[in-house]
Design a binder for these strands. Structure first.
Lengths: 206, 206
DNA sequence: CCATAAACTACCCAATTTGGGGGGTACAGG
DNA sequence: CCTGTACCCCCCAAATTGGGTAGTTTATGG
């Protein structure tokens, strides 16, 4: 029951260190180690990895692009990103692309091992800061200037509904919907739907 | 430097077991343990906890409602949910309410300790299944019927932009935007914005 | 090399939506 | 009693939307 592992990392030293380290475990088997996504993709179906350790900053295609394509061609692969990047955009791009875990490169060797174990057990290993970023992305603004009715209506605006449609779903008149939207626009200092939705997302109002 | 901890858990045995266990550590100090949110909220500012261990299924106000109010009154508090629920809705409601961590009740005592350590270090401890749920919530559909241009335009529709606005931001004519939207509607089998956005969210197209 | 898909542009039309301006009632909490 | 919130109604002009039809160009793959 050796778990098949593929490594994609352009730094030769790191690549070889990972390979040696992981092969020490008899339930792990590094089937291939590549220096770029293009080469890895040529063999991804034959390699049939359960787990891919993926760098982001690679020559040619980025690890995020590579993640998308691997998940398309081999959806069962669990991809763990290992990178120096810990800014929000990169993290969320990687997760959207289909990454299962996200470790920063300061993680020690034990953490790498335990991350793979976690993935096998159905988890999603992340470095502390990354996990906090991810969790914070769900949190709503606790000091919204909007009333609950206004928030409710703004949510539906963000779903693309028309005033008429909103009125029908929350059982008030269209005129009342307009009344609330006018107040929302005043409070958010905007004067159209798009800007209101933008503010709502920026300020986590919905 | 004792980290102030408050426990909110209606089961007396668990509440007392947690209290005893945590007080074994000299860097932890359980300042109070309550059986419901209402009582806890009366003293939350004097208790001034760094960390709150919170059950969800409580008499009176739920732990999720309680989390919202605590985060409103004491935003610096880090709330760790400890519960039997591991369904998606409950998890996301808790995170939206402001929870920093989420453990299921089958977690062992060491996990409880390490979770608190993680929170103090700036992390967001989650049980394996929960972390996977959270990470999966970001993943896009790899088999979208839409072309990349269509996806791009649908995203902007979902941001509440008008055709004109979209046309200007991606430097194509308004007529071309209309052309793409017609095709999007055909592919998604809808005939208006709201339904398209709904389908896009259901099928994780954007 | 040809077929196909994708991206692009254009014009027509009717119905709906939107944003802004008024005006009002009712109820709850400080 | 006053303020905030929620509710409802009218008017208006401009913009948006959805649907139809009719093309060009570019790139990719069989």
């Amino acid at each position: 029951m050796g778990n098949r592992i593929v490594i994609i990392e352009d730094n030769k030293d790191i690549r070889e260190a990972f390979t040696l380290l992981l092969n020490l475990r008899d339930d792990f088997s590094v089937v291939n180690a590549y220096s770029n996504c293009e080469d890895a993709l040529k063999n991804i179906e034959e390699d049939a990895p359960h787990i891919v350790l993926m760098d982001i900053d690679l020559p040619g295609m980025s690890g995020i692009e590579g993640t998308k394509i691997i998940k398309k061609n081999l959806p069962s692969a669990n991809i763990i990103i290992i990178t120096v990047f810990e800014n929000g955009k990169t993290v969320f791009d990687a997760l959207c692309a289909g990454a299962t875990g996200y470790l920063t490169k300061n993680s020690d060797r034990d953490r790498l091992m335990s991350a793979i174990d976690e993935v096998i057990k159905g988890g999603a290993p992340m470095s502390s800061k990354i996990a906090r970023l991810v969790v914070q992305s769900f949190q709503k603004n606790m000091n919204s200037p909007l009333t609950s009715r206004e928030t409710e209506i703004l949510s539906q605006i963000a779903e693309g509904k028309s005033y008429t449609n909103i009125a029908d779903t929350i059982f008030i008149s269209k005129e009342t919907v307009k009344y609330h939207i006018k107040n929302i626009y005043i409070k958010l200092q905007v004067n159209n739907k798009a800007d209101a939705i933008k503010r709502a997302n920026e300020d986590r109002l919905i």
